[in-house]
Design a binder for these strands. Sequence first.
DNA 1: CTGTTAGCGCATTCAA
DNA 2: TTGAATGCGCTAACAG
Lengths: 340, 340
Amino acid sequence: MSSMAPGRTPTMRDVAAHAAVSPMTVSRTLRGDPRVSPEMRARVLASVEALRYRRNDLARGLRTGRSSGLLGLVVTNLSNPFYSELALGVEGLASVNGMRVVIGNTGGDVDRERQLVDDMASRRVDGIIVVPAGNDHAHLDPAGLHGLPVVLATRPPTGLDVDCVVVDDFGGSRSATAALVAQGHRRIGFLGLGRSLWTGAERLRGHCAALEEAGLPVEDALLRSVAPDAGAAEAVALELLAADDPPTALFAANNRNTVGAYRAIAETGSPAALAGFDDLPLADLFAAPISVVTYDTGEVGRRAAELLLERIADEEPPAHARLVTIGTTLKRYRPLRGPG
Amino acid sequence: MSSMAPGRTPTMRDVAAHAAVSPMTVSRTLRGDPRVSPEMRARVLASVEALRYRRNDLARGLRTGRSSGLLGLVVTNLSNPFYSELALGVEGLASVNGMRVVIGNTGGDVDRERQLVDDMASRRVDGIIVVPAGNDHAHLDPAGLHGLPVVLATRPPTGLDVDCVVVDDFGGSRSATAALVAQGHRRIGFLGLGRSLWTGAERLRGHCAALEEAGLPVEDALLRSVAPDAGAAEAVALELLAADDPPTALFAANNRNTVGAYRAIAETGSPAALAGFDDLPLADLFAAPISVVTYDTGEVGRRAAELLLERIADEEPPAHARLVTIGTTLKRYRPLRGPG
DNA sequence: CTGTTAGCGCATTCAA
DNA sequence: TTGAATGCGCTAACAG
């Protein structure tokens, strides 16, 4: 029964001293080693409780050479519901495996992404899930990170051989445009993303595929790229709707574009139909109907974590990088109607 | 110039061997110690680059006795935009101070909260921000965590003396109800939260205060508590609207209740006005007008992180726990109108 | 300016 | 069944 400096976090030695045993007995007891006699075990646990001792996982990890038990998660914008659900998915699967998640927000800045990945590698995370901000993925190559497992989410790797989880951007876009065509629309305006982004290219490709499959022409005048905010999308949509021969429907390639397009349609009183990629949660409360391409965002995170955990666990990693595609669903929102 | 086992993460010794210097020189170089000659520095850095060496922050922290550089963040539901913005706020301030954030999601389960806090304490995080799931906060007491700083967000501590950041639930509710009163409403239905929750109690209190200040009676028949999902809220709202002398307006105490109330009003074609606590982002696209109590959710996270970082930095902690209240704004959403 | 010794908190390996 | 030495990767504190 010895005392201890106040305010200091107790160590195993403190517990050992308190219980009048060797540190090893404390260590074994806490590890659940069966070779500890019940009396010793009880004495140690009493001291542990008395001192409110908590084993230092950092020091433990250092000695065992085992991992930190941390997964890194680097996203572009955590406040975007998409990424927060993705984060929740990752956290859930990590927790089941006794791991925690360290988050980093890049704000779309590649330099910051580089710096975050570097920092996490220094913290010896067991693996990293990244939603890449740009197209240069060189700093994400496990080869340059001593084999640290990396999984990309939302965008496929360029120049890297790493696992990846993406949404079926092509298929989702195609089905949305096909649905508009099925409703009789023959001139459909497209509010796209930057063509340099993989996601943007795929969604455009899906849109065009649906048109071609319907025997409709792909008119350049109806295809627009939009800066990534709803205001810009609204301006572009207004321009499309003001044309001599305006489109009778719009397809917006992401949620911000969809919101902008919706506003343009509402303001001008245009009868144009609207479809968009990404869900808009309370769209059934909107004044006008809208179709959206939805997908399970949490599933993206869960699958990414799954791939990462496999890489971490496997002695011999899979020979080739794996690509998981998350399917999409076309969802129609119709305004609520009163009984009258 | 010595070689190294492949696939292994290099250590300082590896770098030292590669550069043919002592580990201390490597350590000093990486620390930026000015007492290293330029030639040595260059030689070391060359080896560092050649081996793609990255200092092990865990071992470093162990030796320096310094902190892990991690902040714990325990929330009830990360997929809720409120908490993801809070998380973003915390992450931002942490990053500025060179720290990372470890997240944990409780799903509202107090046992899981306990376990997460315990785990994070074992990982030697420098402090924890918690959105408590329940009213029992005993396990969050720094006294039981060897002085580990704790800051509560959204809900004030019960039985603890810790810093806290809350939203002005009382003031926000009062202003929302006051606005309805100013519009001429004299019978206002209230869709509240559980009375046991602090947030719920405060929002009810604010509502009642506004009524009393206007000389209006607080009628029990108009006050309801709702289970925490939109469907239940809708049912309760329908019941209120179906009364003999129905309320001419509803005030819902959180976003889910607001959505339920909105649906009830839309379905019945009721002319009742609607106000609610918590923002509903795209409410200007809704068919009917709505007022909401908004607040800067990111600010909640930033202030919480601020308080926590102060506690971590200060040798002598503030004598008393501090309470920060984040103000609210009443925001009116009006449906978009076409030019016609 | 550079190297040596020692130890952070813990767990493996060996001895008793 | 328990304890003593040794070292994980890194850096204070001291030599030189």
